[in-house]
Amino acid sequence: MKLVRSKDLLGWFFILIAVIFITLFYFYPMLQALILSFQSGMGVNLEFAGLDNYRRLLNDPVALTAIRNTFIYLIIQVPVMILLALFFSVLLNNPDLKFKGFFRTAIFLPAVISLVAYSVIFKYLFSTDGIVNKFLLNLSLISEPIEWLMDPFWAKVLIIIAITWRWTGYNMIFYLAALQNVDKSVYEAARVDGANSFQQFFYITIPMLKPIILFTAITSTIGTLQLFDEPMNITRGGPGNETLTISQYIYNLSFEYTPDFGYAAAVSFVIVILTVIFSIIQFRLRGDKK
């Protein structure tokens, strides 16, 4: 009994430094932001405004559009990317594969690209007379060029393509690292029992990687709910507000327009609430049962 209690105390020691740092540099500013969300005014001229900012949010068509857009990205992009990342990591985990280092590095590299290059290149590739349209026209997949940046539908598709391009390799490396922890003998046994690659993937790999899949699902959800770089750099939220995200709107409210930190903070807490809801759903769905 005494031993158990001392182990428990020791456990607190292990987590102590992390708790202190996260409290100081995240929770303390978060609390300040929460207080800010009940204040209103320009820049530093703030006064208490109660729930005004939250009320204003419900009637702000731009905020609602941003929330809608963010949802669309989330629902389509996160599952596609996670499946793709799992698929690549399984291919790359094949012990007989040659040029592994090259393939792994190549697929990971988009995650490190400089935003300047990222935005210039994507706009260049997807311009009306750009390479992507030429390619699709040549294959007769389309009869006239797609207005990737000017059409509300295709601009969203472009953002989804761009996020998937940039973050698939990033998620892949979590799986690659985790796959090393999967006992190879399980696969041998399955093969002996006549399981094909698909069955191995669905009945062994996915269940074994569950903790990490849950991790990437939640962090990708958070990442998408806070999506900023892509719309900011590729479409600037356009055409109109059709690709605007909540995070970009927060940025605009704080730094692009006359600074309204109180309202910006209120919009931020919308993201917090949405993320909490989604995370609970994911924990429940994927079952992090002990």
Binding site: V62, G238, G240, N241, N252, Y257, T258
Partner: peptide
Amino acid sequence: HTYAVMDILIGEIQ
């Protein structure tokens, strides 16, 4: 409010 109004206009022009 130049940029705030510009963004509103961009949306309505669309």
